[in-house]
Simulated scan of single mutants.
Amino acid sequence: MFRLSNNLIGILNFITFLLSIPIIWAGVWLRNNGSSECERFLDTPVIVIGVFLLLVSVAGLVGACCKNSCLLWIYLVVMFLLIVLLFCFTIFAFVVTNKGAGQVLSGRGYKEYKLGDYSNWLQKRVTSGKNWNKIRSCLVDGKVCSKFNETYLSDTVEQFYTERLSALQVSGCCKPSDECGYTYVNPTTWTKTITNSSNPDCAAWDNQPDVLCFNCNSCKAGLLDNLKRDWKRVAIVNIVFLIFLIIVYSVGCCAFRNNRRDNSYPAGWKA
């Protein structure tokens, strides 16, 4: 009979093997059927993750159930590297999302966001021309502001100012900054007035649906605020996953020890 650790590693990797198949299928489907560049952008990472899980799970499954110490050793090395990378990424995620918060406005239900409030590393990744052009295209294709306009179209100016609006849709990309002093017509249409504000976003604003404030620093700041929140959630999930991986790695080490002992005494004593 196989020992408990070998059985556990075998079961866990069989489940991982089954999960990798729909992940690979999803990546192939996105590549062939993605309706926009934003959707197709995800196909390669999804396929890579699926193939990685497939290969690692096969190595762990065969190594544990067939007493193949070489494959199990490769599996443990990969698991160790994965634990180290995940730990480093989790620490990094907490560090780069430590800065940045919306500014409360008097008499407003929403906040406004400043690009300079966020970490320099995040700013550089988002503000580079190549990256922002792709992000901007995705925001336009995703009809972020169109949905926002439909939701609050019936609001009067007083009602609109009291709404609790999202960083990305309102204070970021779909309306001009309050300090511009523009006159409200509807959520995505504002009449430009003479302003003394030095904020470059005021000049960047346009009522055209595919322009609006997508070129504004406030739009980039709104995106960074969303990224900050998402990365913190991912970091918390990573901590739980990291604990799980450490447990699996420990069980795998026991299975590797069993394999070496069994291969050394194929017909002899087993603990």
Rank of each mutant, 00 (worst) to 15 (best):
E150W: 08
N238D: 11
A221I: 02
I15S: 07
V96Y: 12
T97R: 10
I47F: 04
S137R: 03
L105D: 03
I24G: 02
G63L: 07
C88R: 10
W269D: 01
N7T: 13
P22F: 01
V78G: 01
G268V: 04
I11D: 13
C138N: 11
I83H: 00
S171A: 07
S119R: 13
Y118M: 12
G34S: 14
G102F: 06
R260K: 15
T16H: 13
I11V: 15
A267K: 13
Q159T: 07
P200H: 05
T156D: 08
D262L: 09
R40T: 07
G100V: 11
L86G: 05
G34I: 05
K232W: 04
C202N: 00
V28M: 01
N32H: 08
D43H: 04
V84E: 10
G10L: 08
T127F: 06
Q123S: 13
K99N: 05
V56F: 10
S128I: 04
T90F: 02
I49M: 12
D210H: 12
L168M: 10
W29M: 10
L168H: 12
A235E: 04
V248R: 09
V78S: 03
C202H: 03
A64R: 08
K147A: 14
T151G: 05
L54P: 07
N131H: 02
W231V: 11
P176H: 03
L245R: 03
I236H: 01
F160C: 01
T188H: 11
G27N: 06
R260W: 01
S20L: 13
G50R: 15
Y75M: 03
Q123W: 09
S177E: 14
N149F: 08
T183C: 02
A167C: 11
S137E: 04
S119Y: 08
K143R: 15
P187V: 06
V237L: 10
F148V: 14
I243D: 00
Y182K: 02
W29F: 02
Q169N: 15
Y75R: 01
L30A: 12
G27D: 13
D210M: 11
V234D: 00
N263M: 02
Q123P: 12
A271W: 11
K130Y: 10
I49P: 00
S154A: 08
L76R: 08
R125L: 11
S36P: 08
V240P: 01
L86T: 10
D201F: 08
S5K: 03
N13E: 11
N131A: 11
I15E: 02
L12E: 13
G222M: 05
R108L: 08
C138I: 15
F52N: 06
A267Q: 09
V140N: 15
D43W: 10
K175M: 12
R261H: 00
G34E: 03
W73M: 13
Y118K: 06
F89E: 14
R108C: 10
G50Y: 14
I239Y: 04
N196Q: 12
